[in-house]
């Protein structure tokens, strides 16, 4: 990647974007750990169930909407003054 995409005046927005990402990432990590632990404890899923799982159309659309929201939040933080 070019070394001059972002300039010094972009750094504050970059920091906001990183914090936004870190917050959202933690929400997901927390949720995944709780889900996997709960399901494993209950003997509901085999160890590779998450890797092998294929979303159906409804879940795929829901994931797509969540993903778009995450990207919008990051791009918004990067490109506009908060």
């Amino acid at each position: 990647m070019s070394k001059d995409n972002l300039r010094a005046e972009d750094l504050d927005r970059l920091g906001q974007a990183i914090i936004t990402l870190a917050k959202e990432l933690w929400v997901v990590k927390d949720r995944v750990r709780i889900l996997e632990a709960t399901l494993a404890d209950a003997g509901v899923i085999p160890p590779d169930a998450v890797d092998q799982f294929q979303p159906n159309a409804e879940l795929g659309e829901s994931l797509s909407a969540d993903r778009a929201l995450l990207i919008e939040q990051v791009l918004g933080a990067l490109s506009t003054d908060q």
């Binding site: 990647m1 972002l6 300039r7 927005r13 791009l75 990067l78 506009t80």
Partner: peptide, 16 residues
């Protein structure tokens, strides 16, 4: 333009 620089960064990142 800050938005242009973000656009370029995203395109660079996805290409690479």
């Amino acid at each position: 333009d800050p938005e242009f620089r973000v656009l370029r960064m995203c395109r660079d990142w996805t290409l690479e």
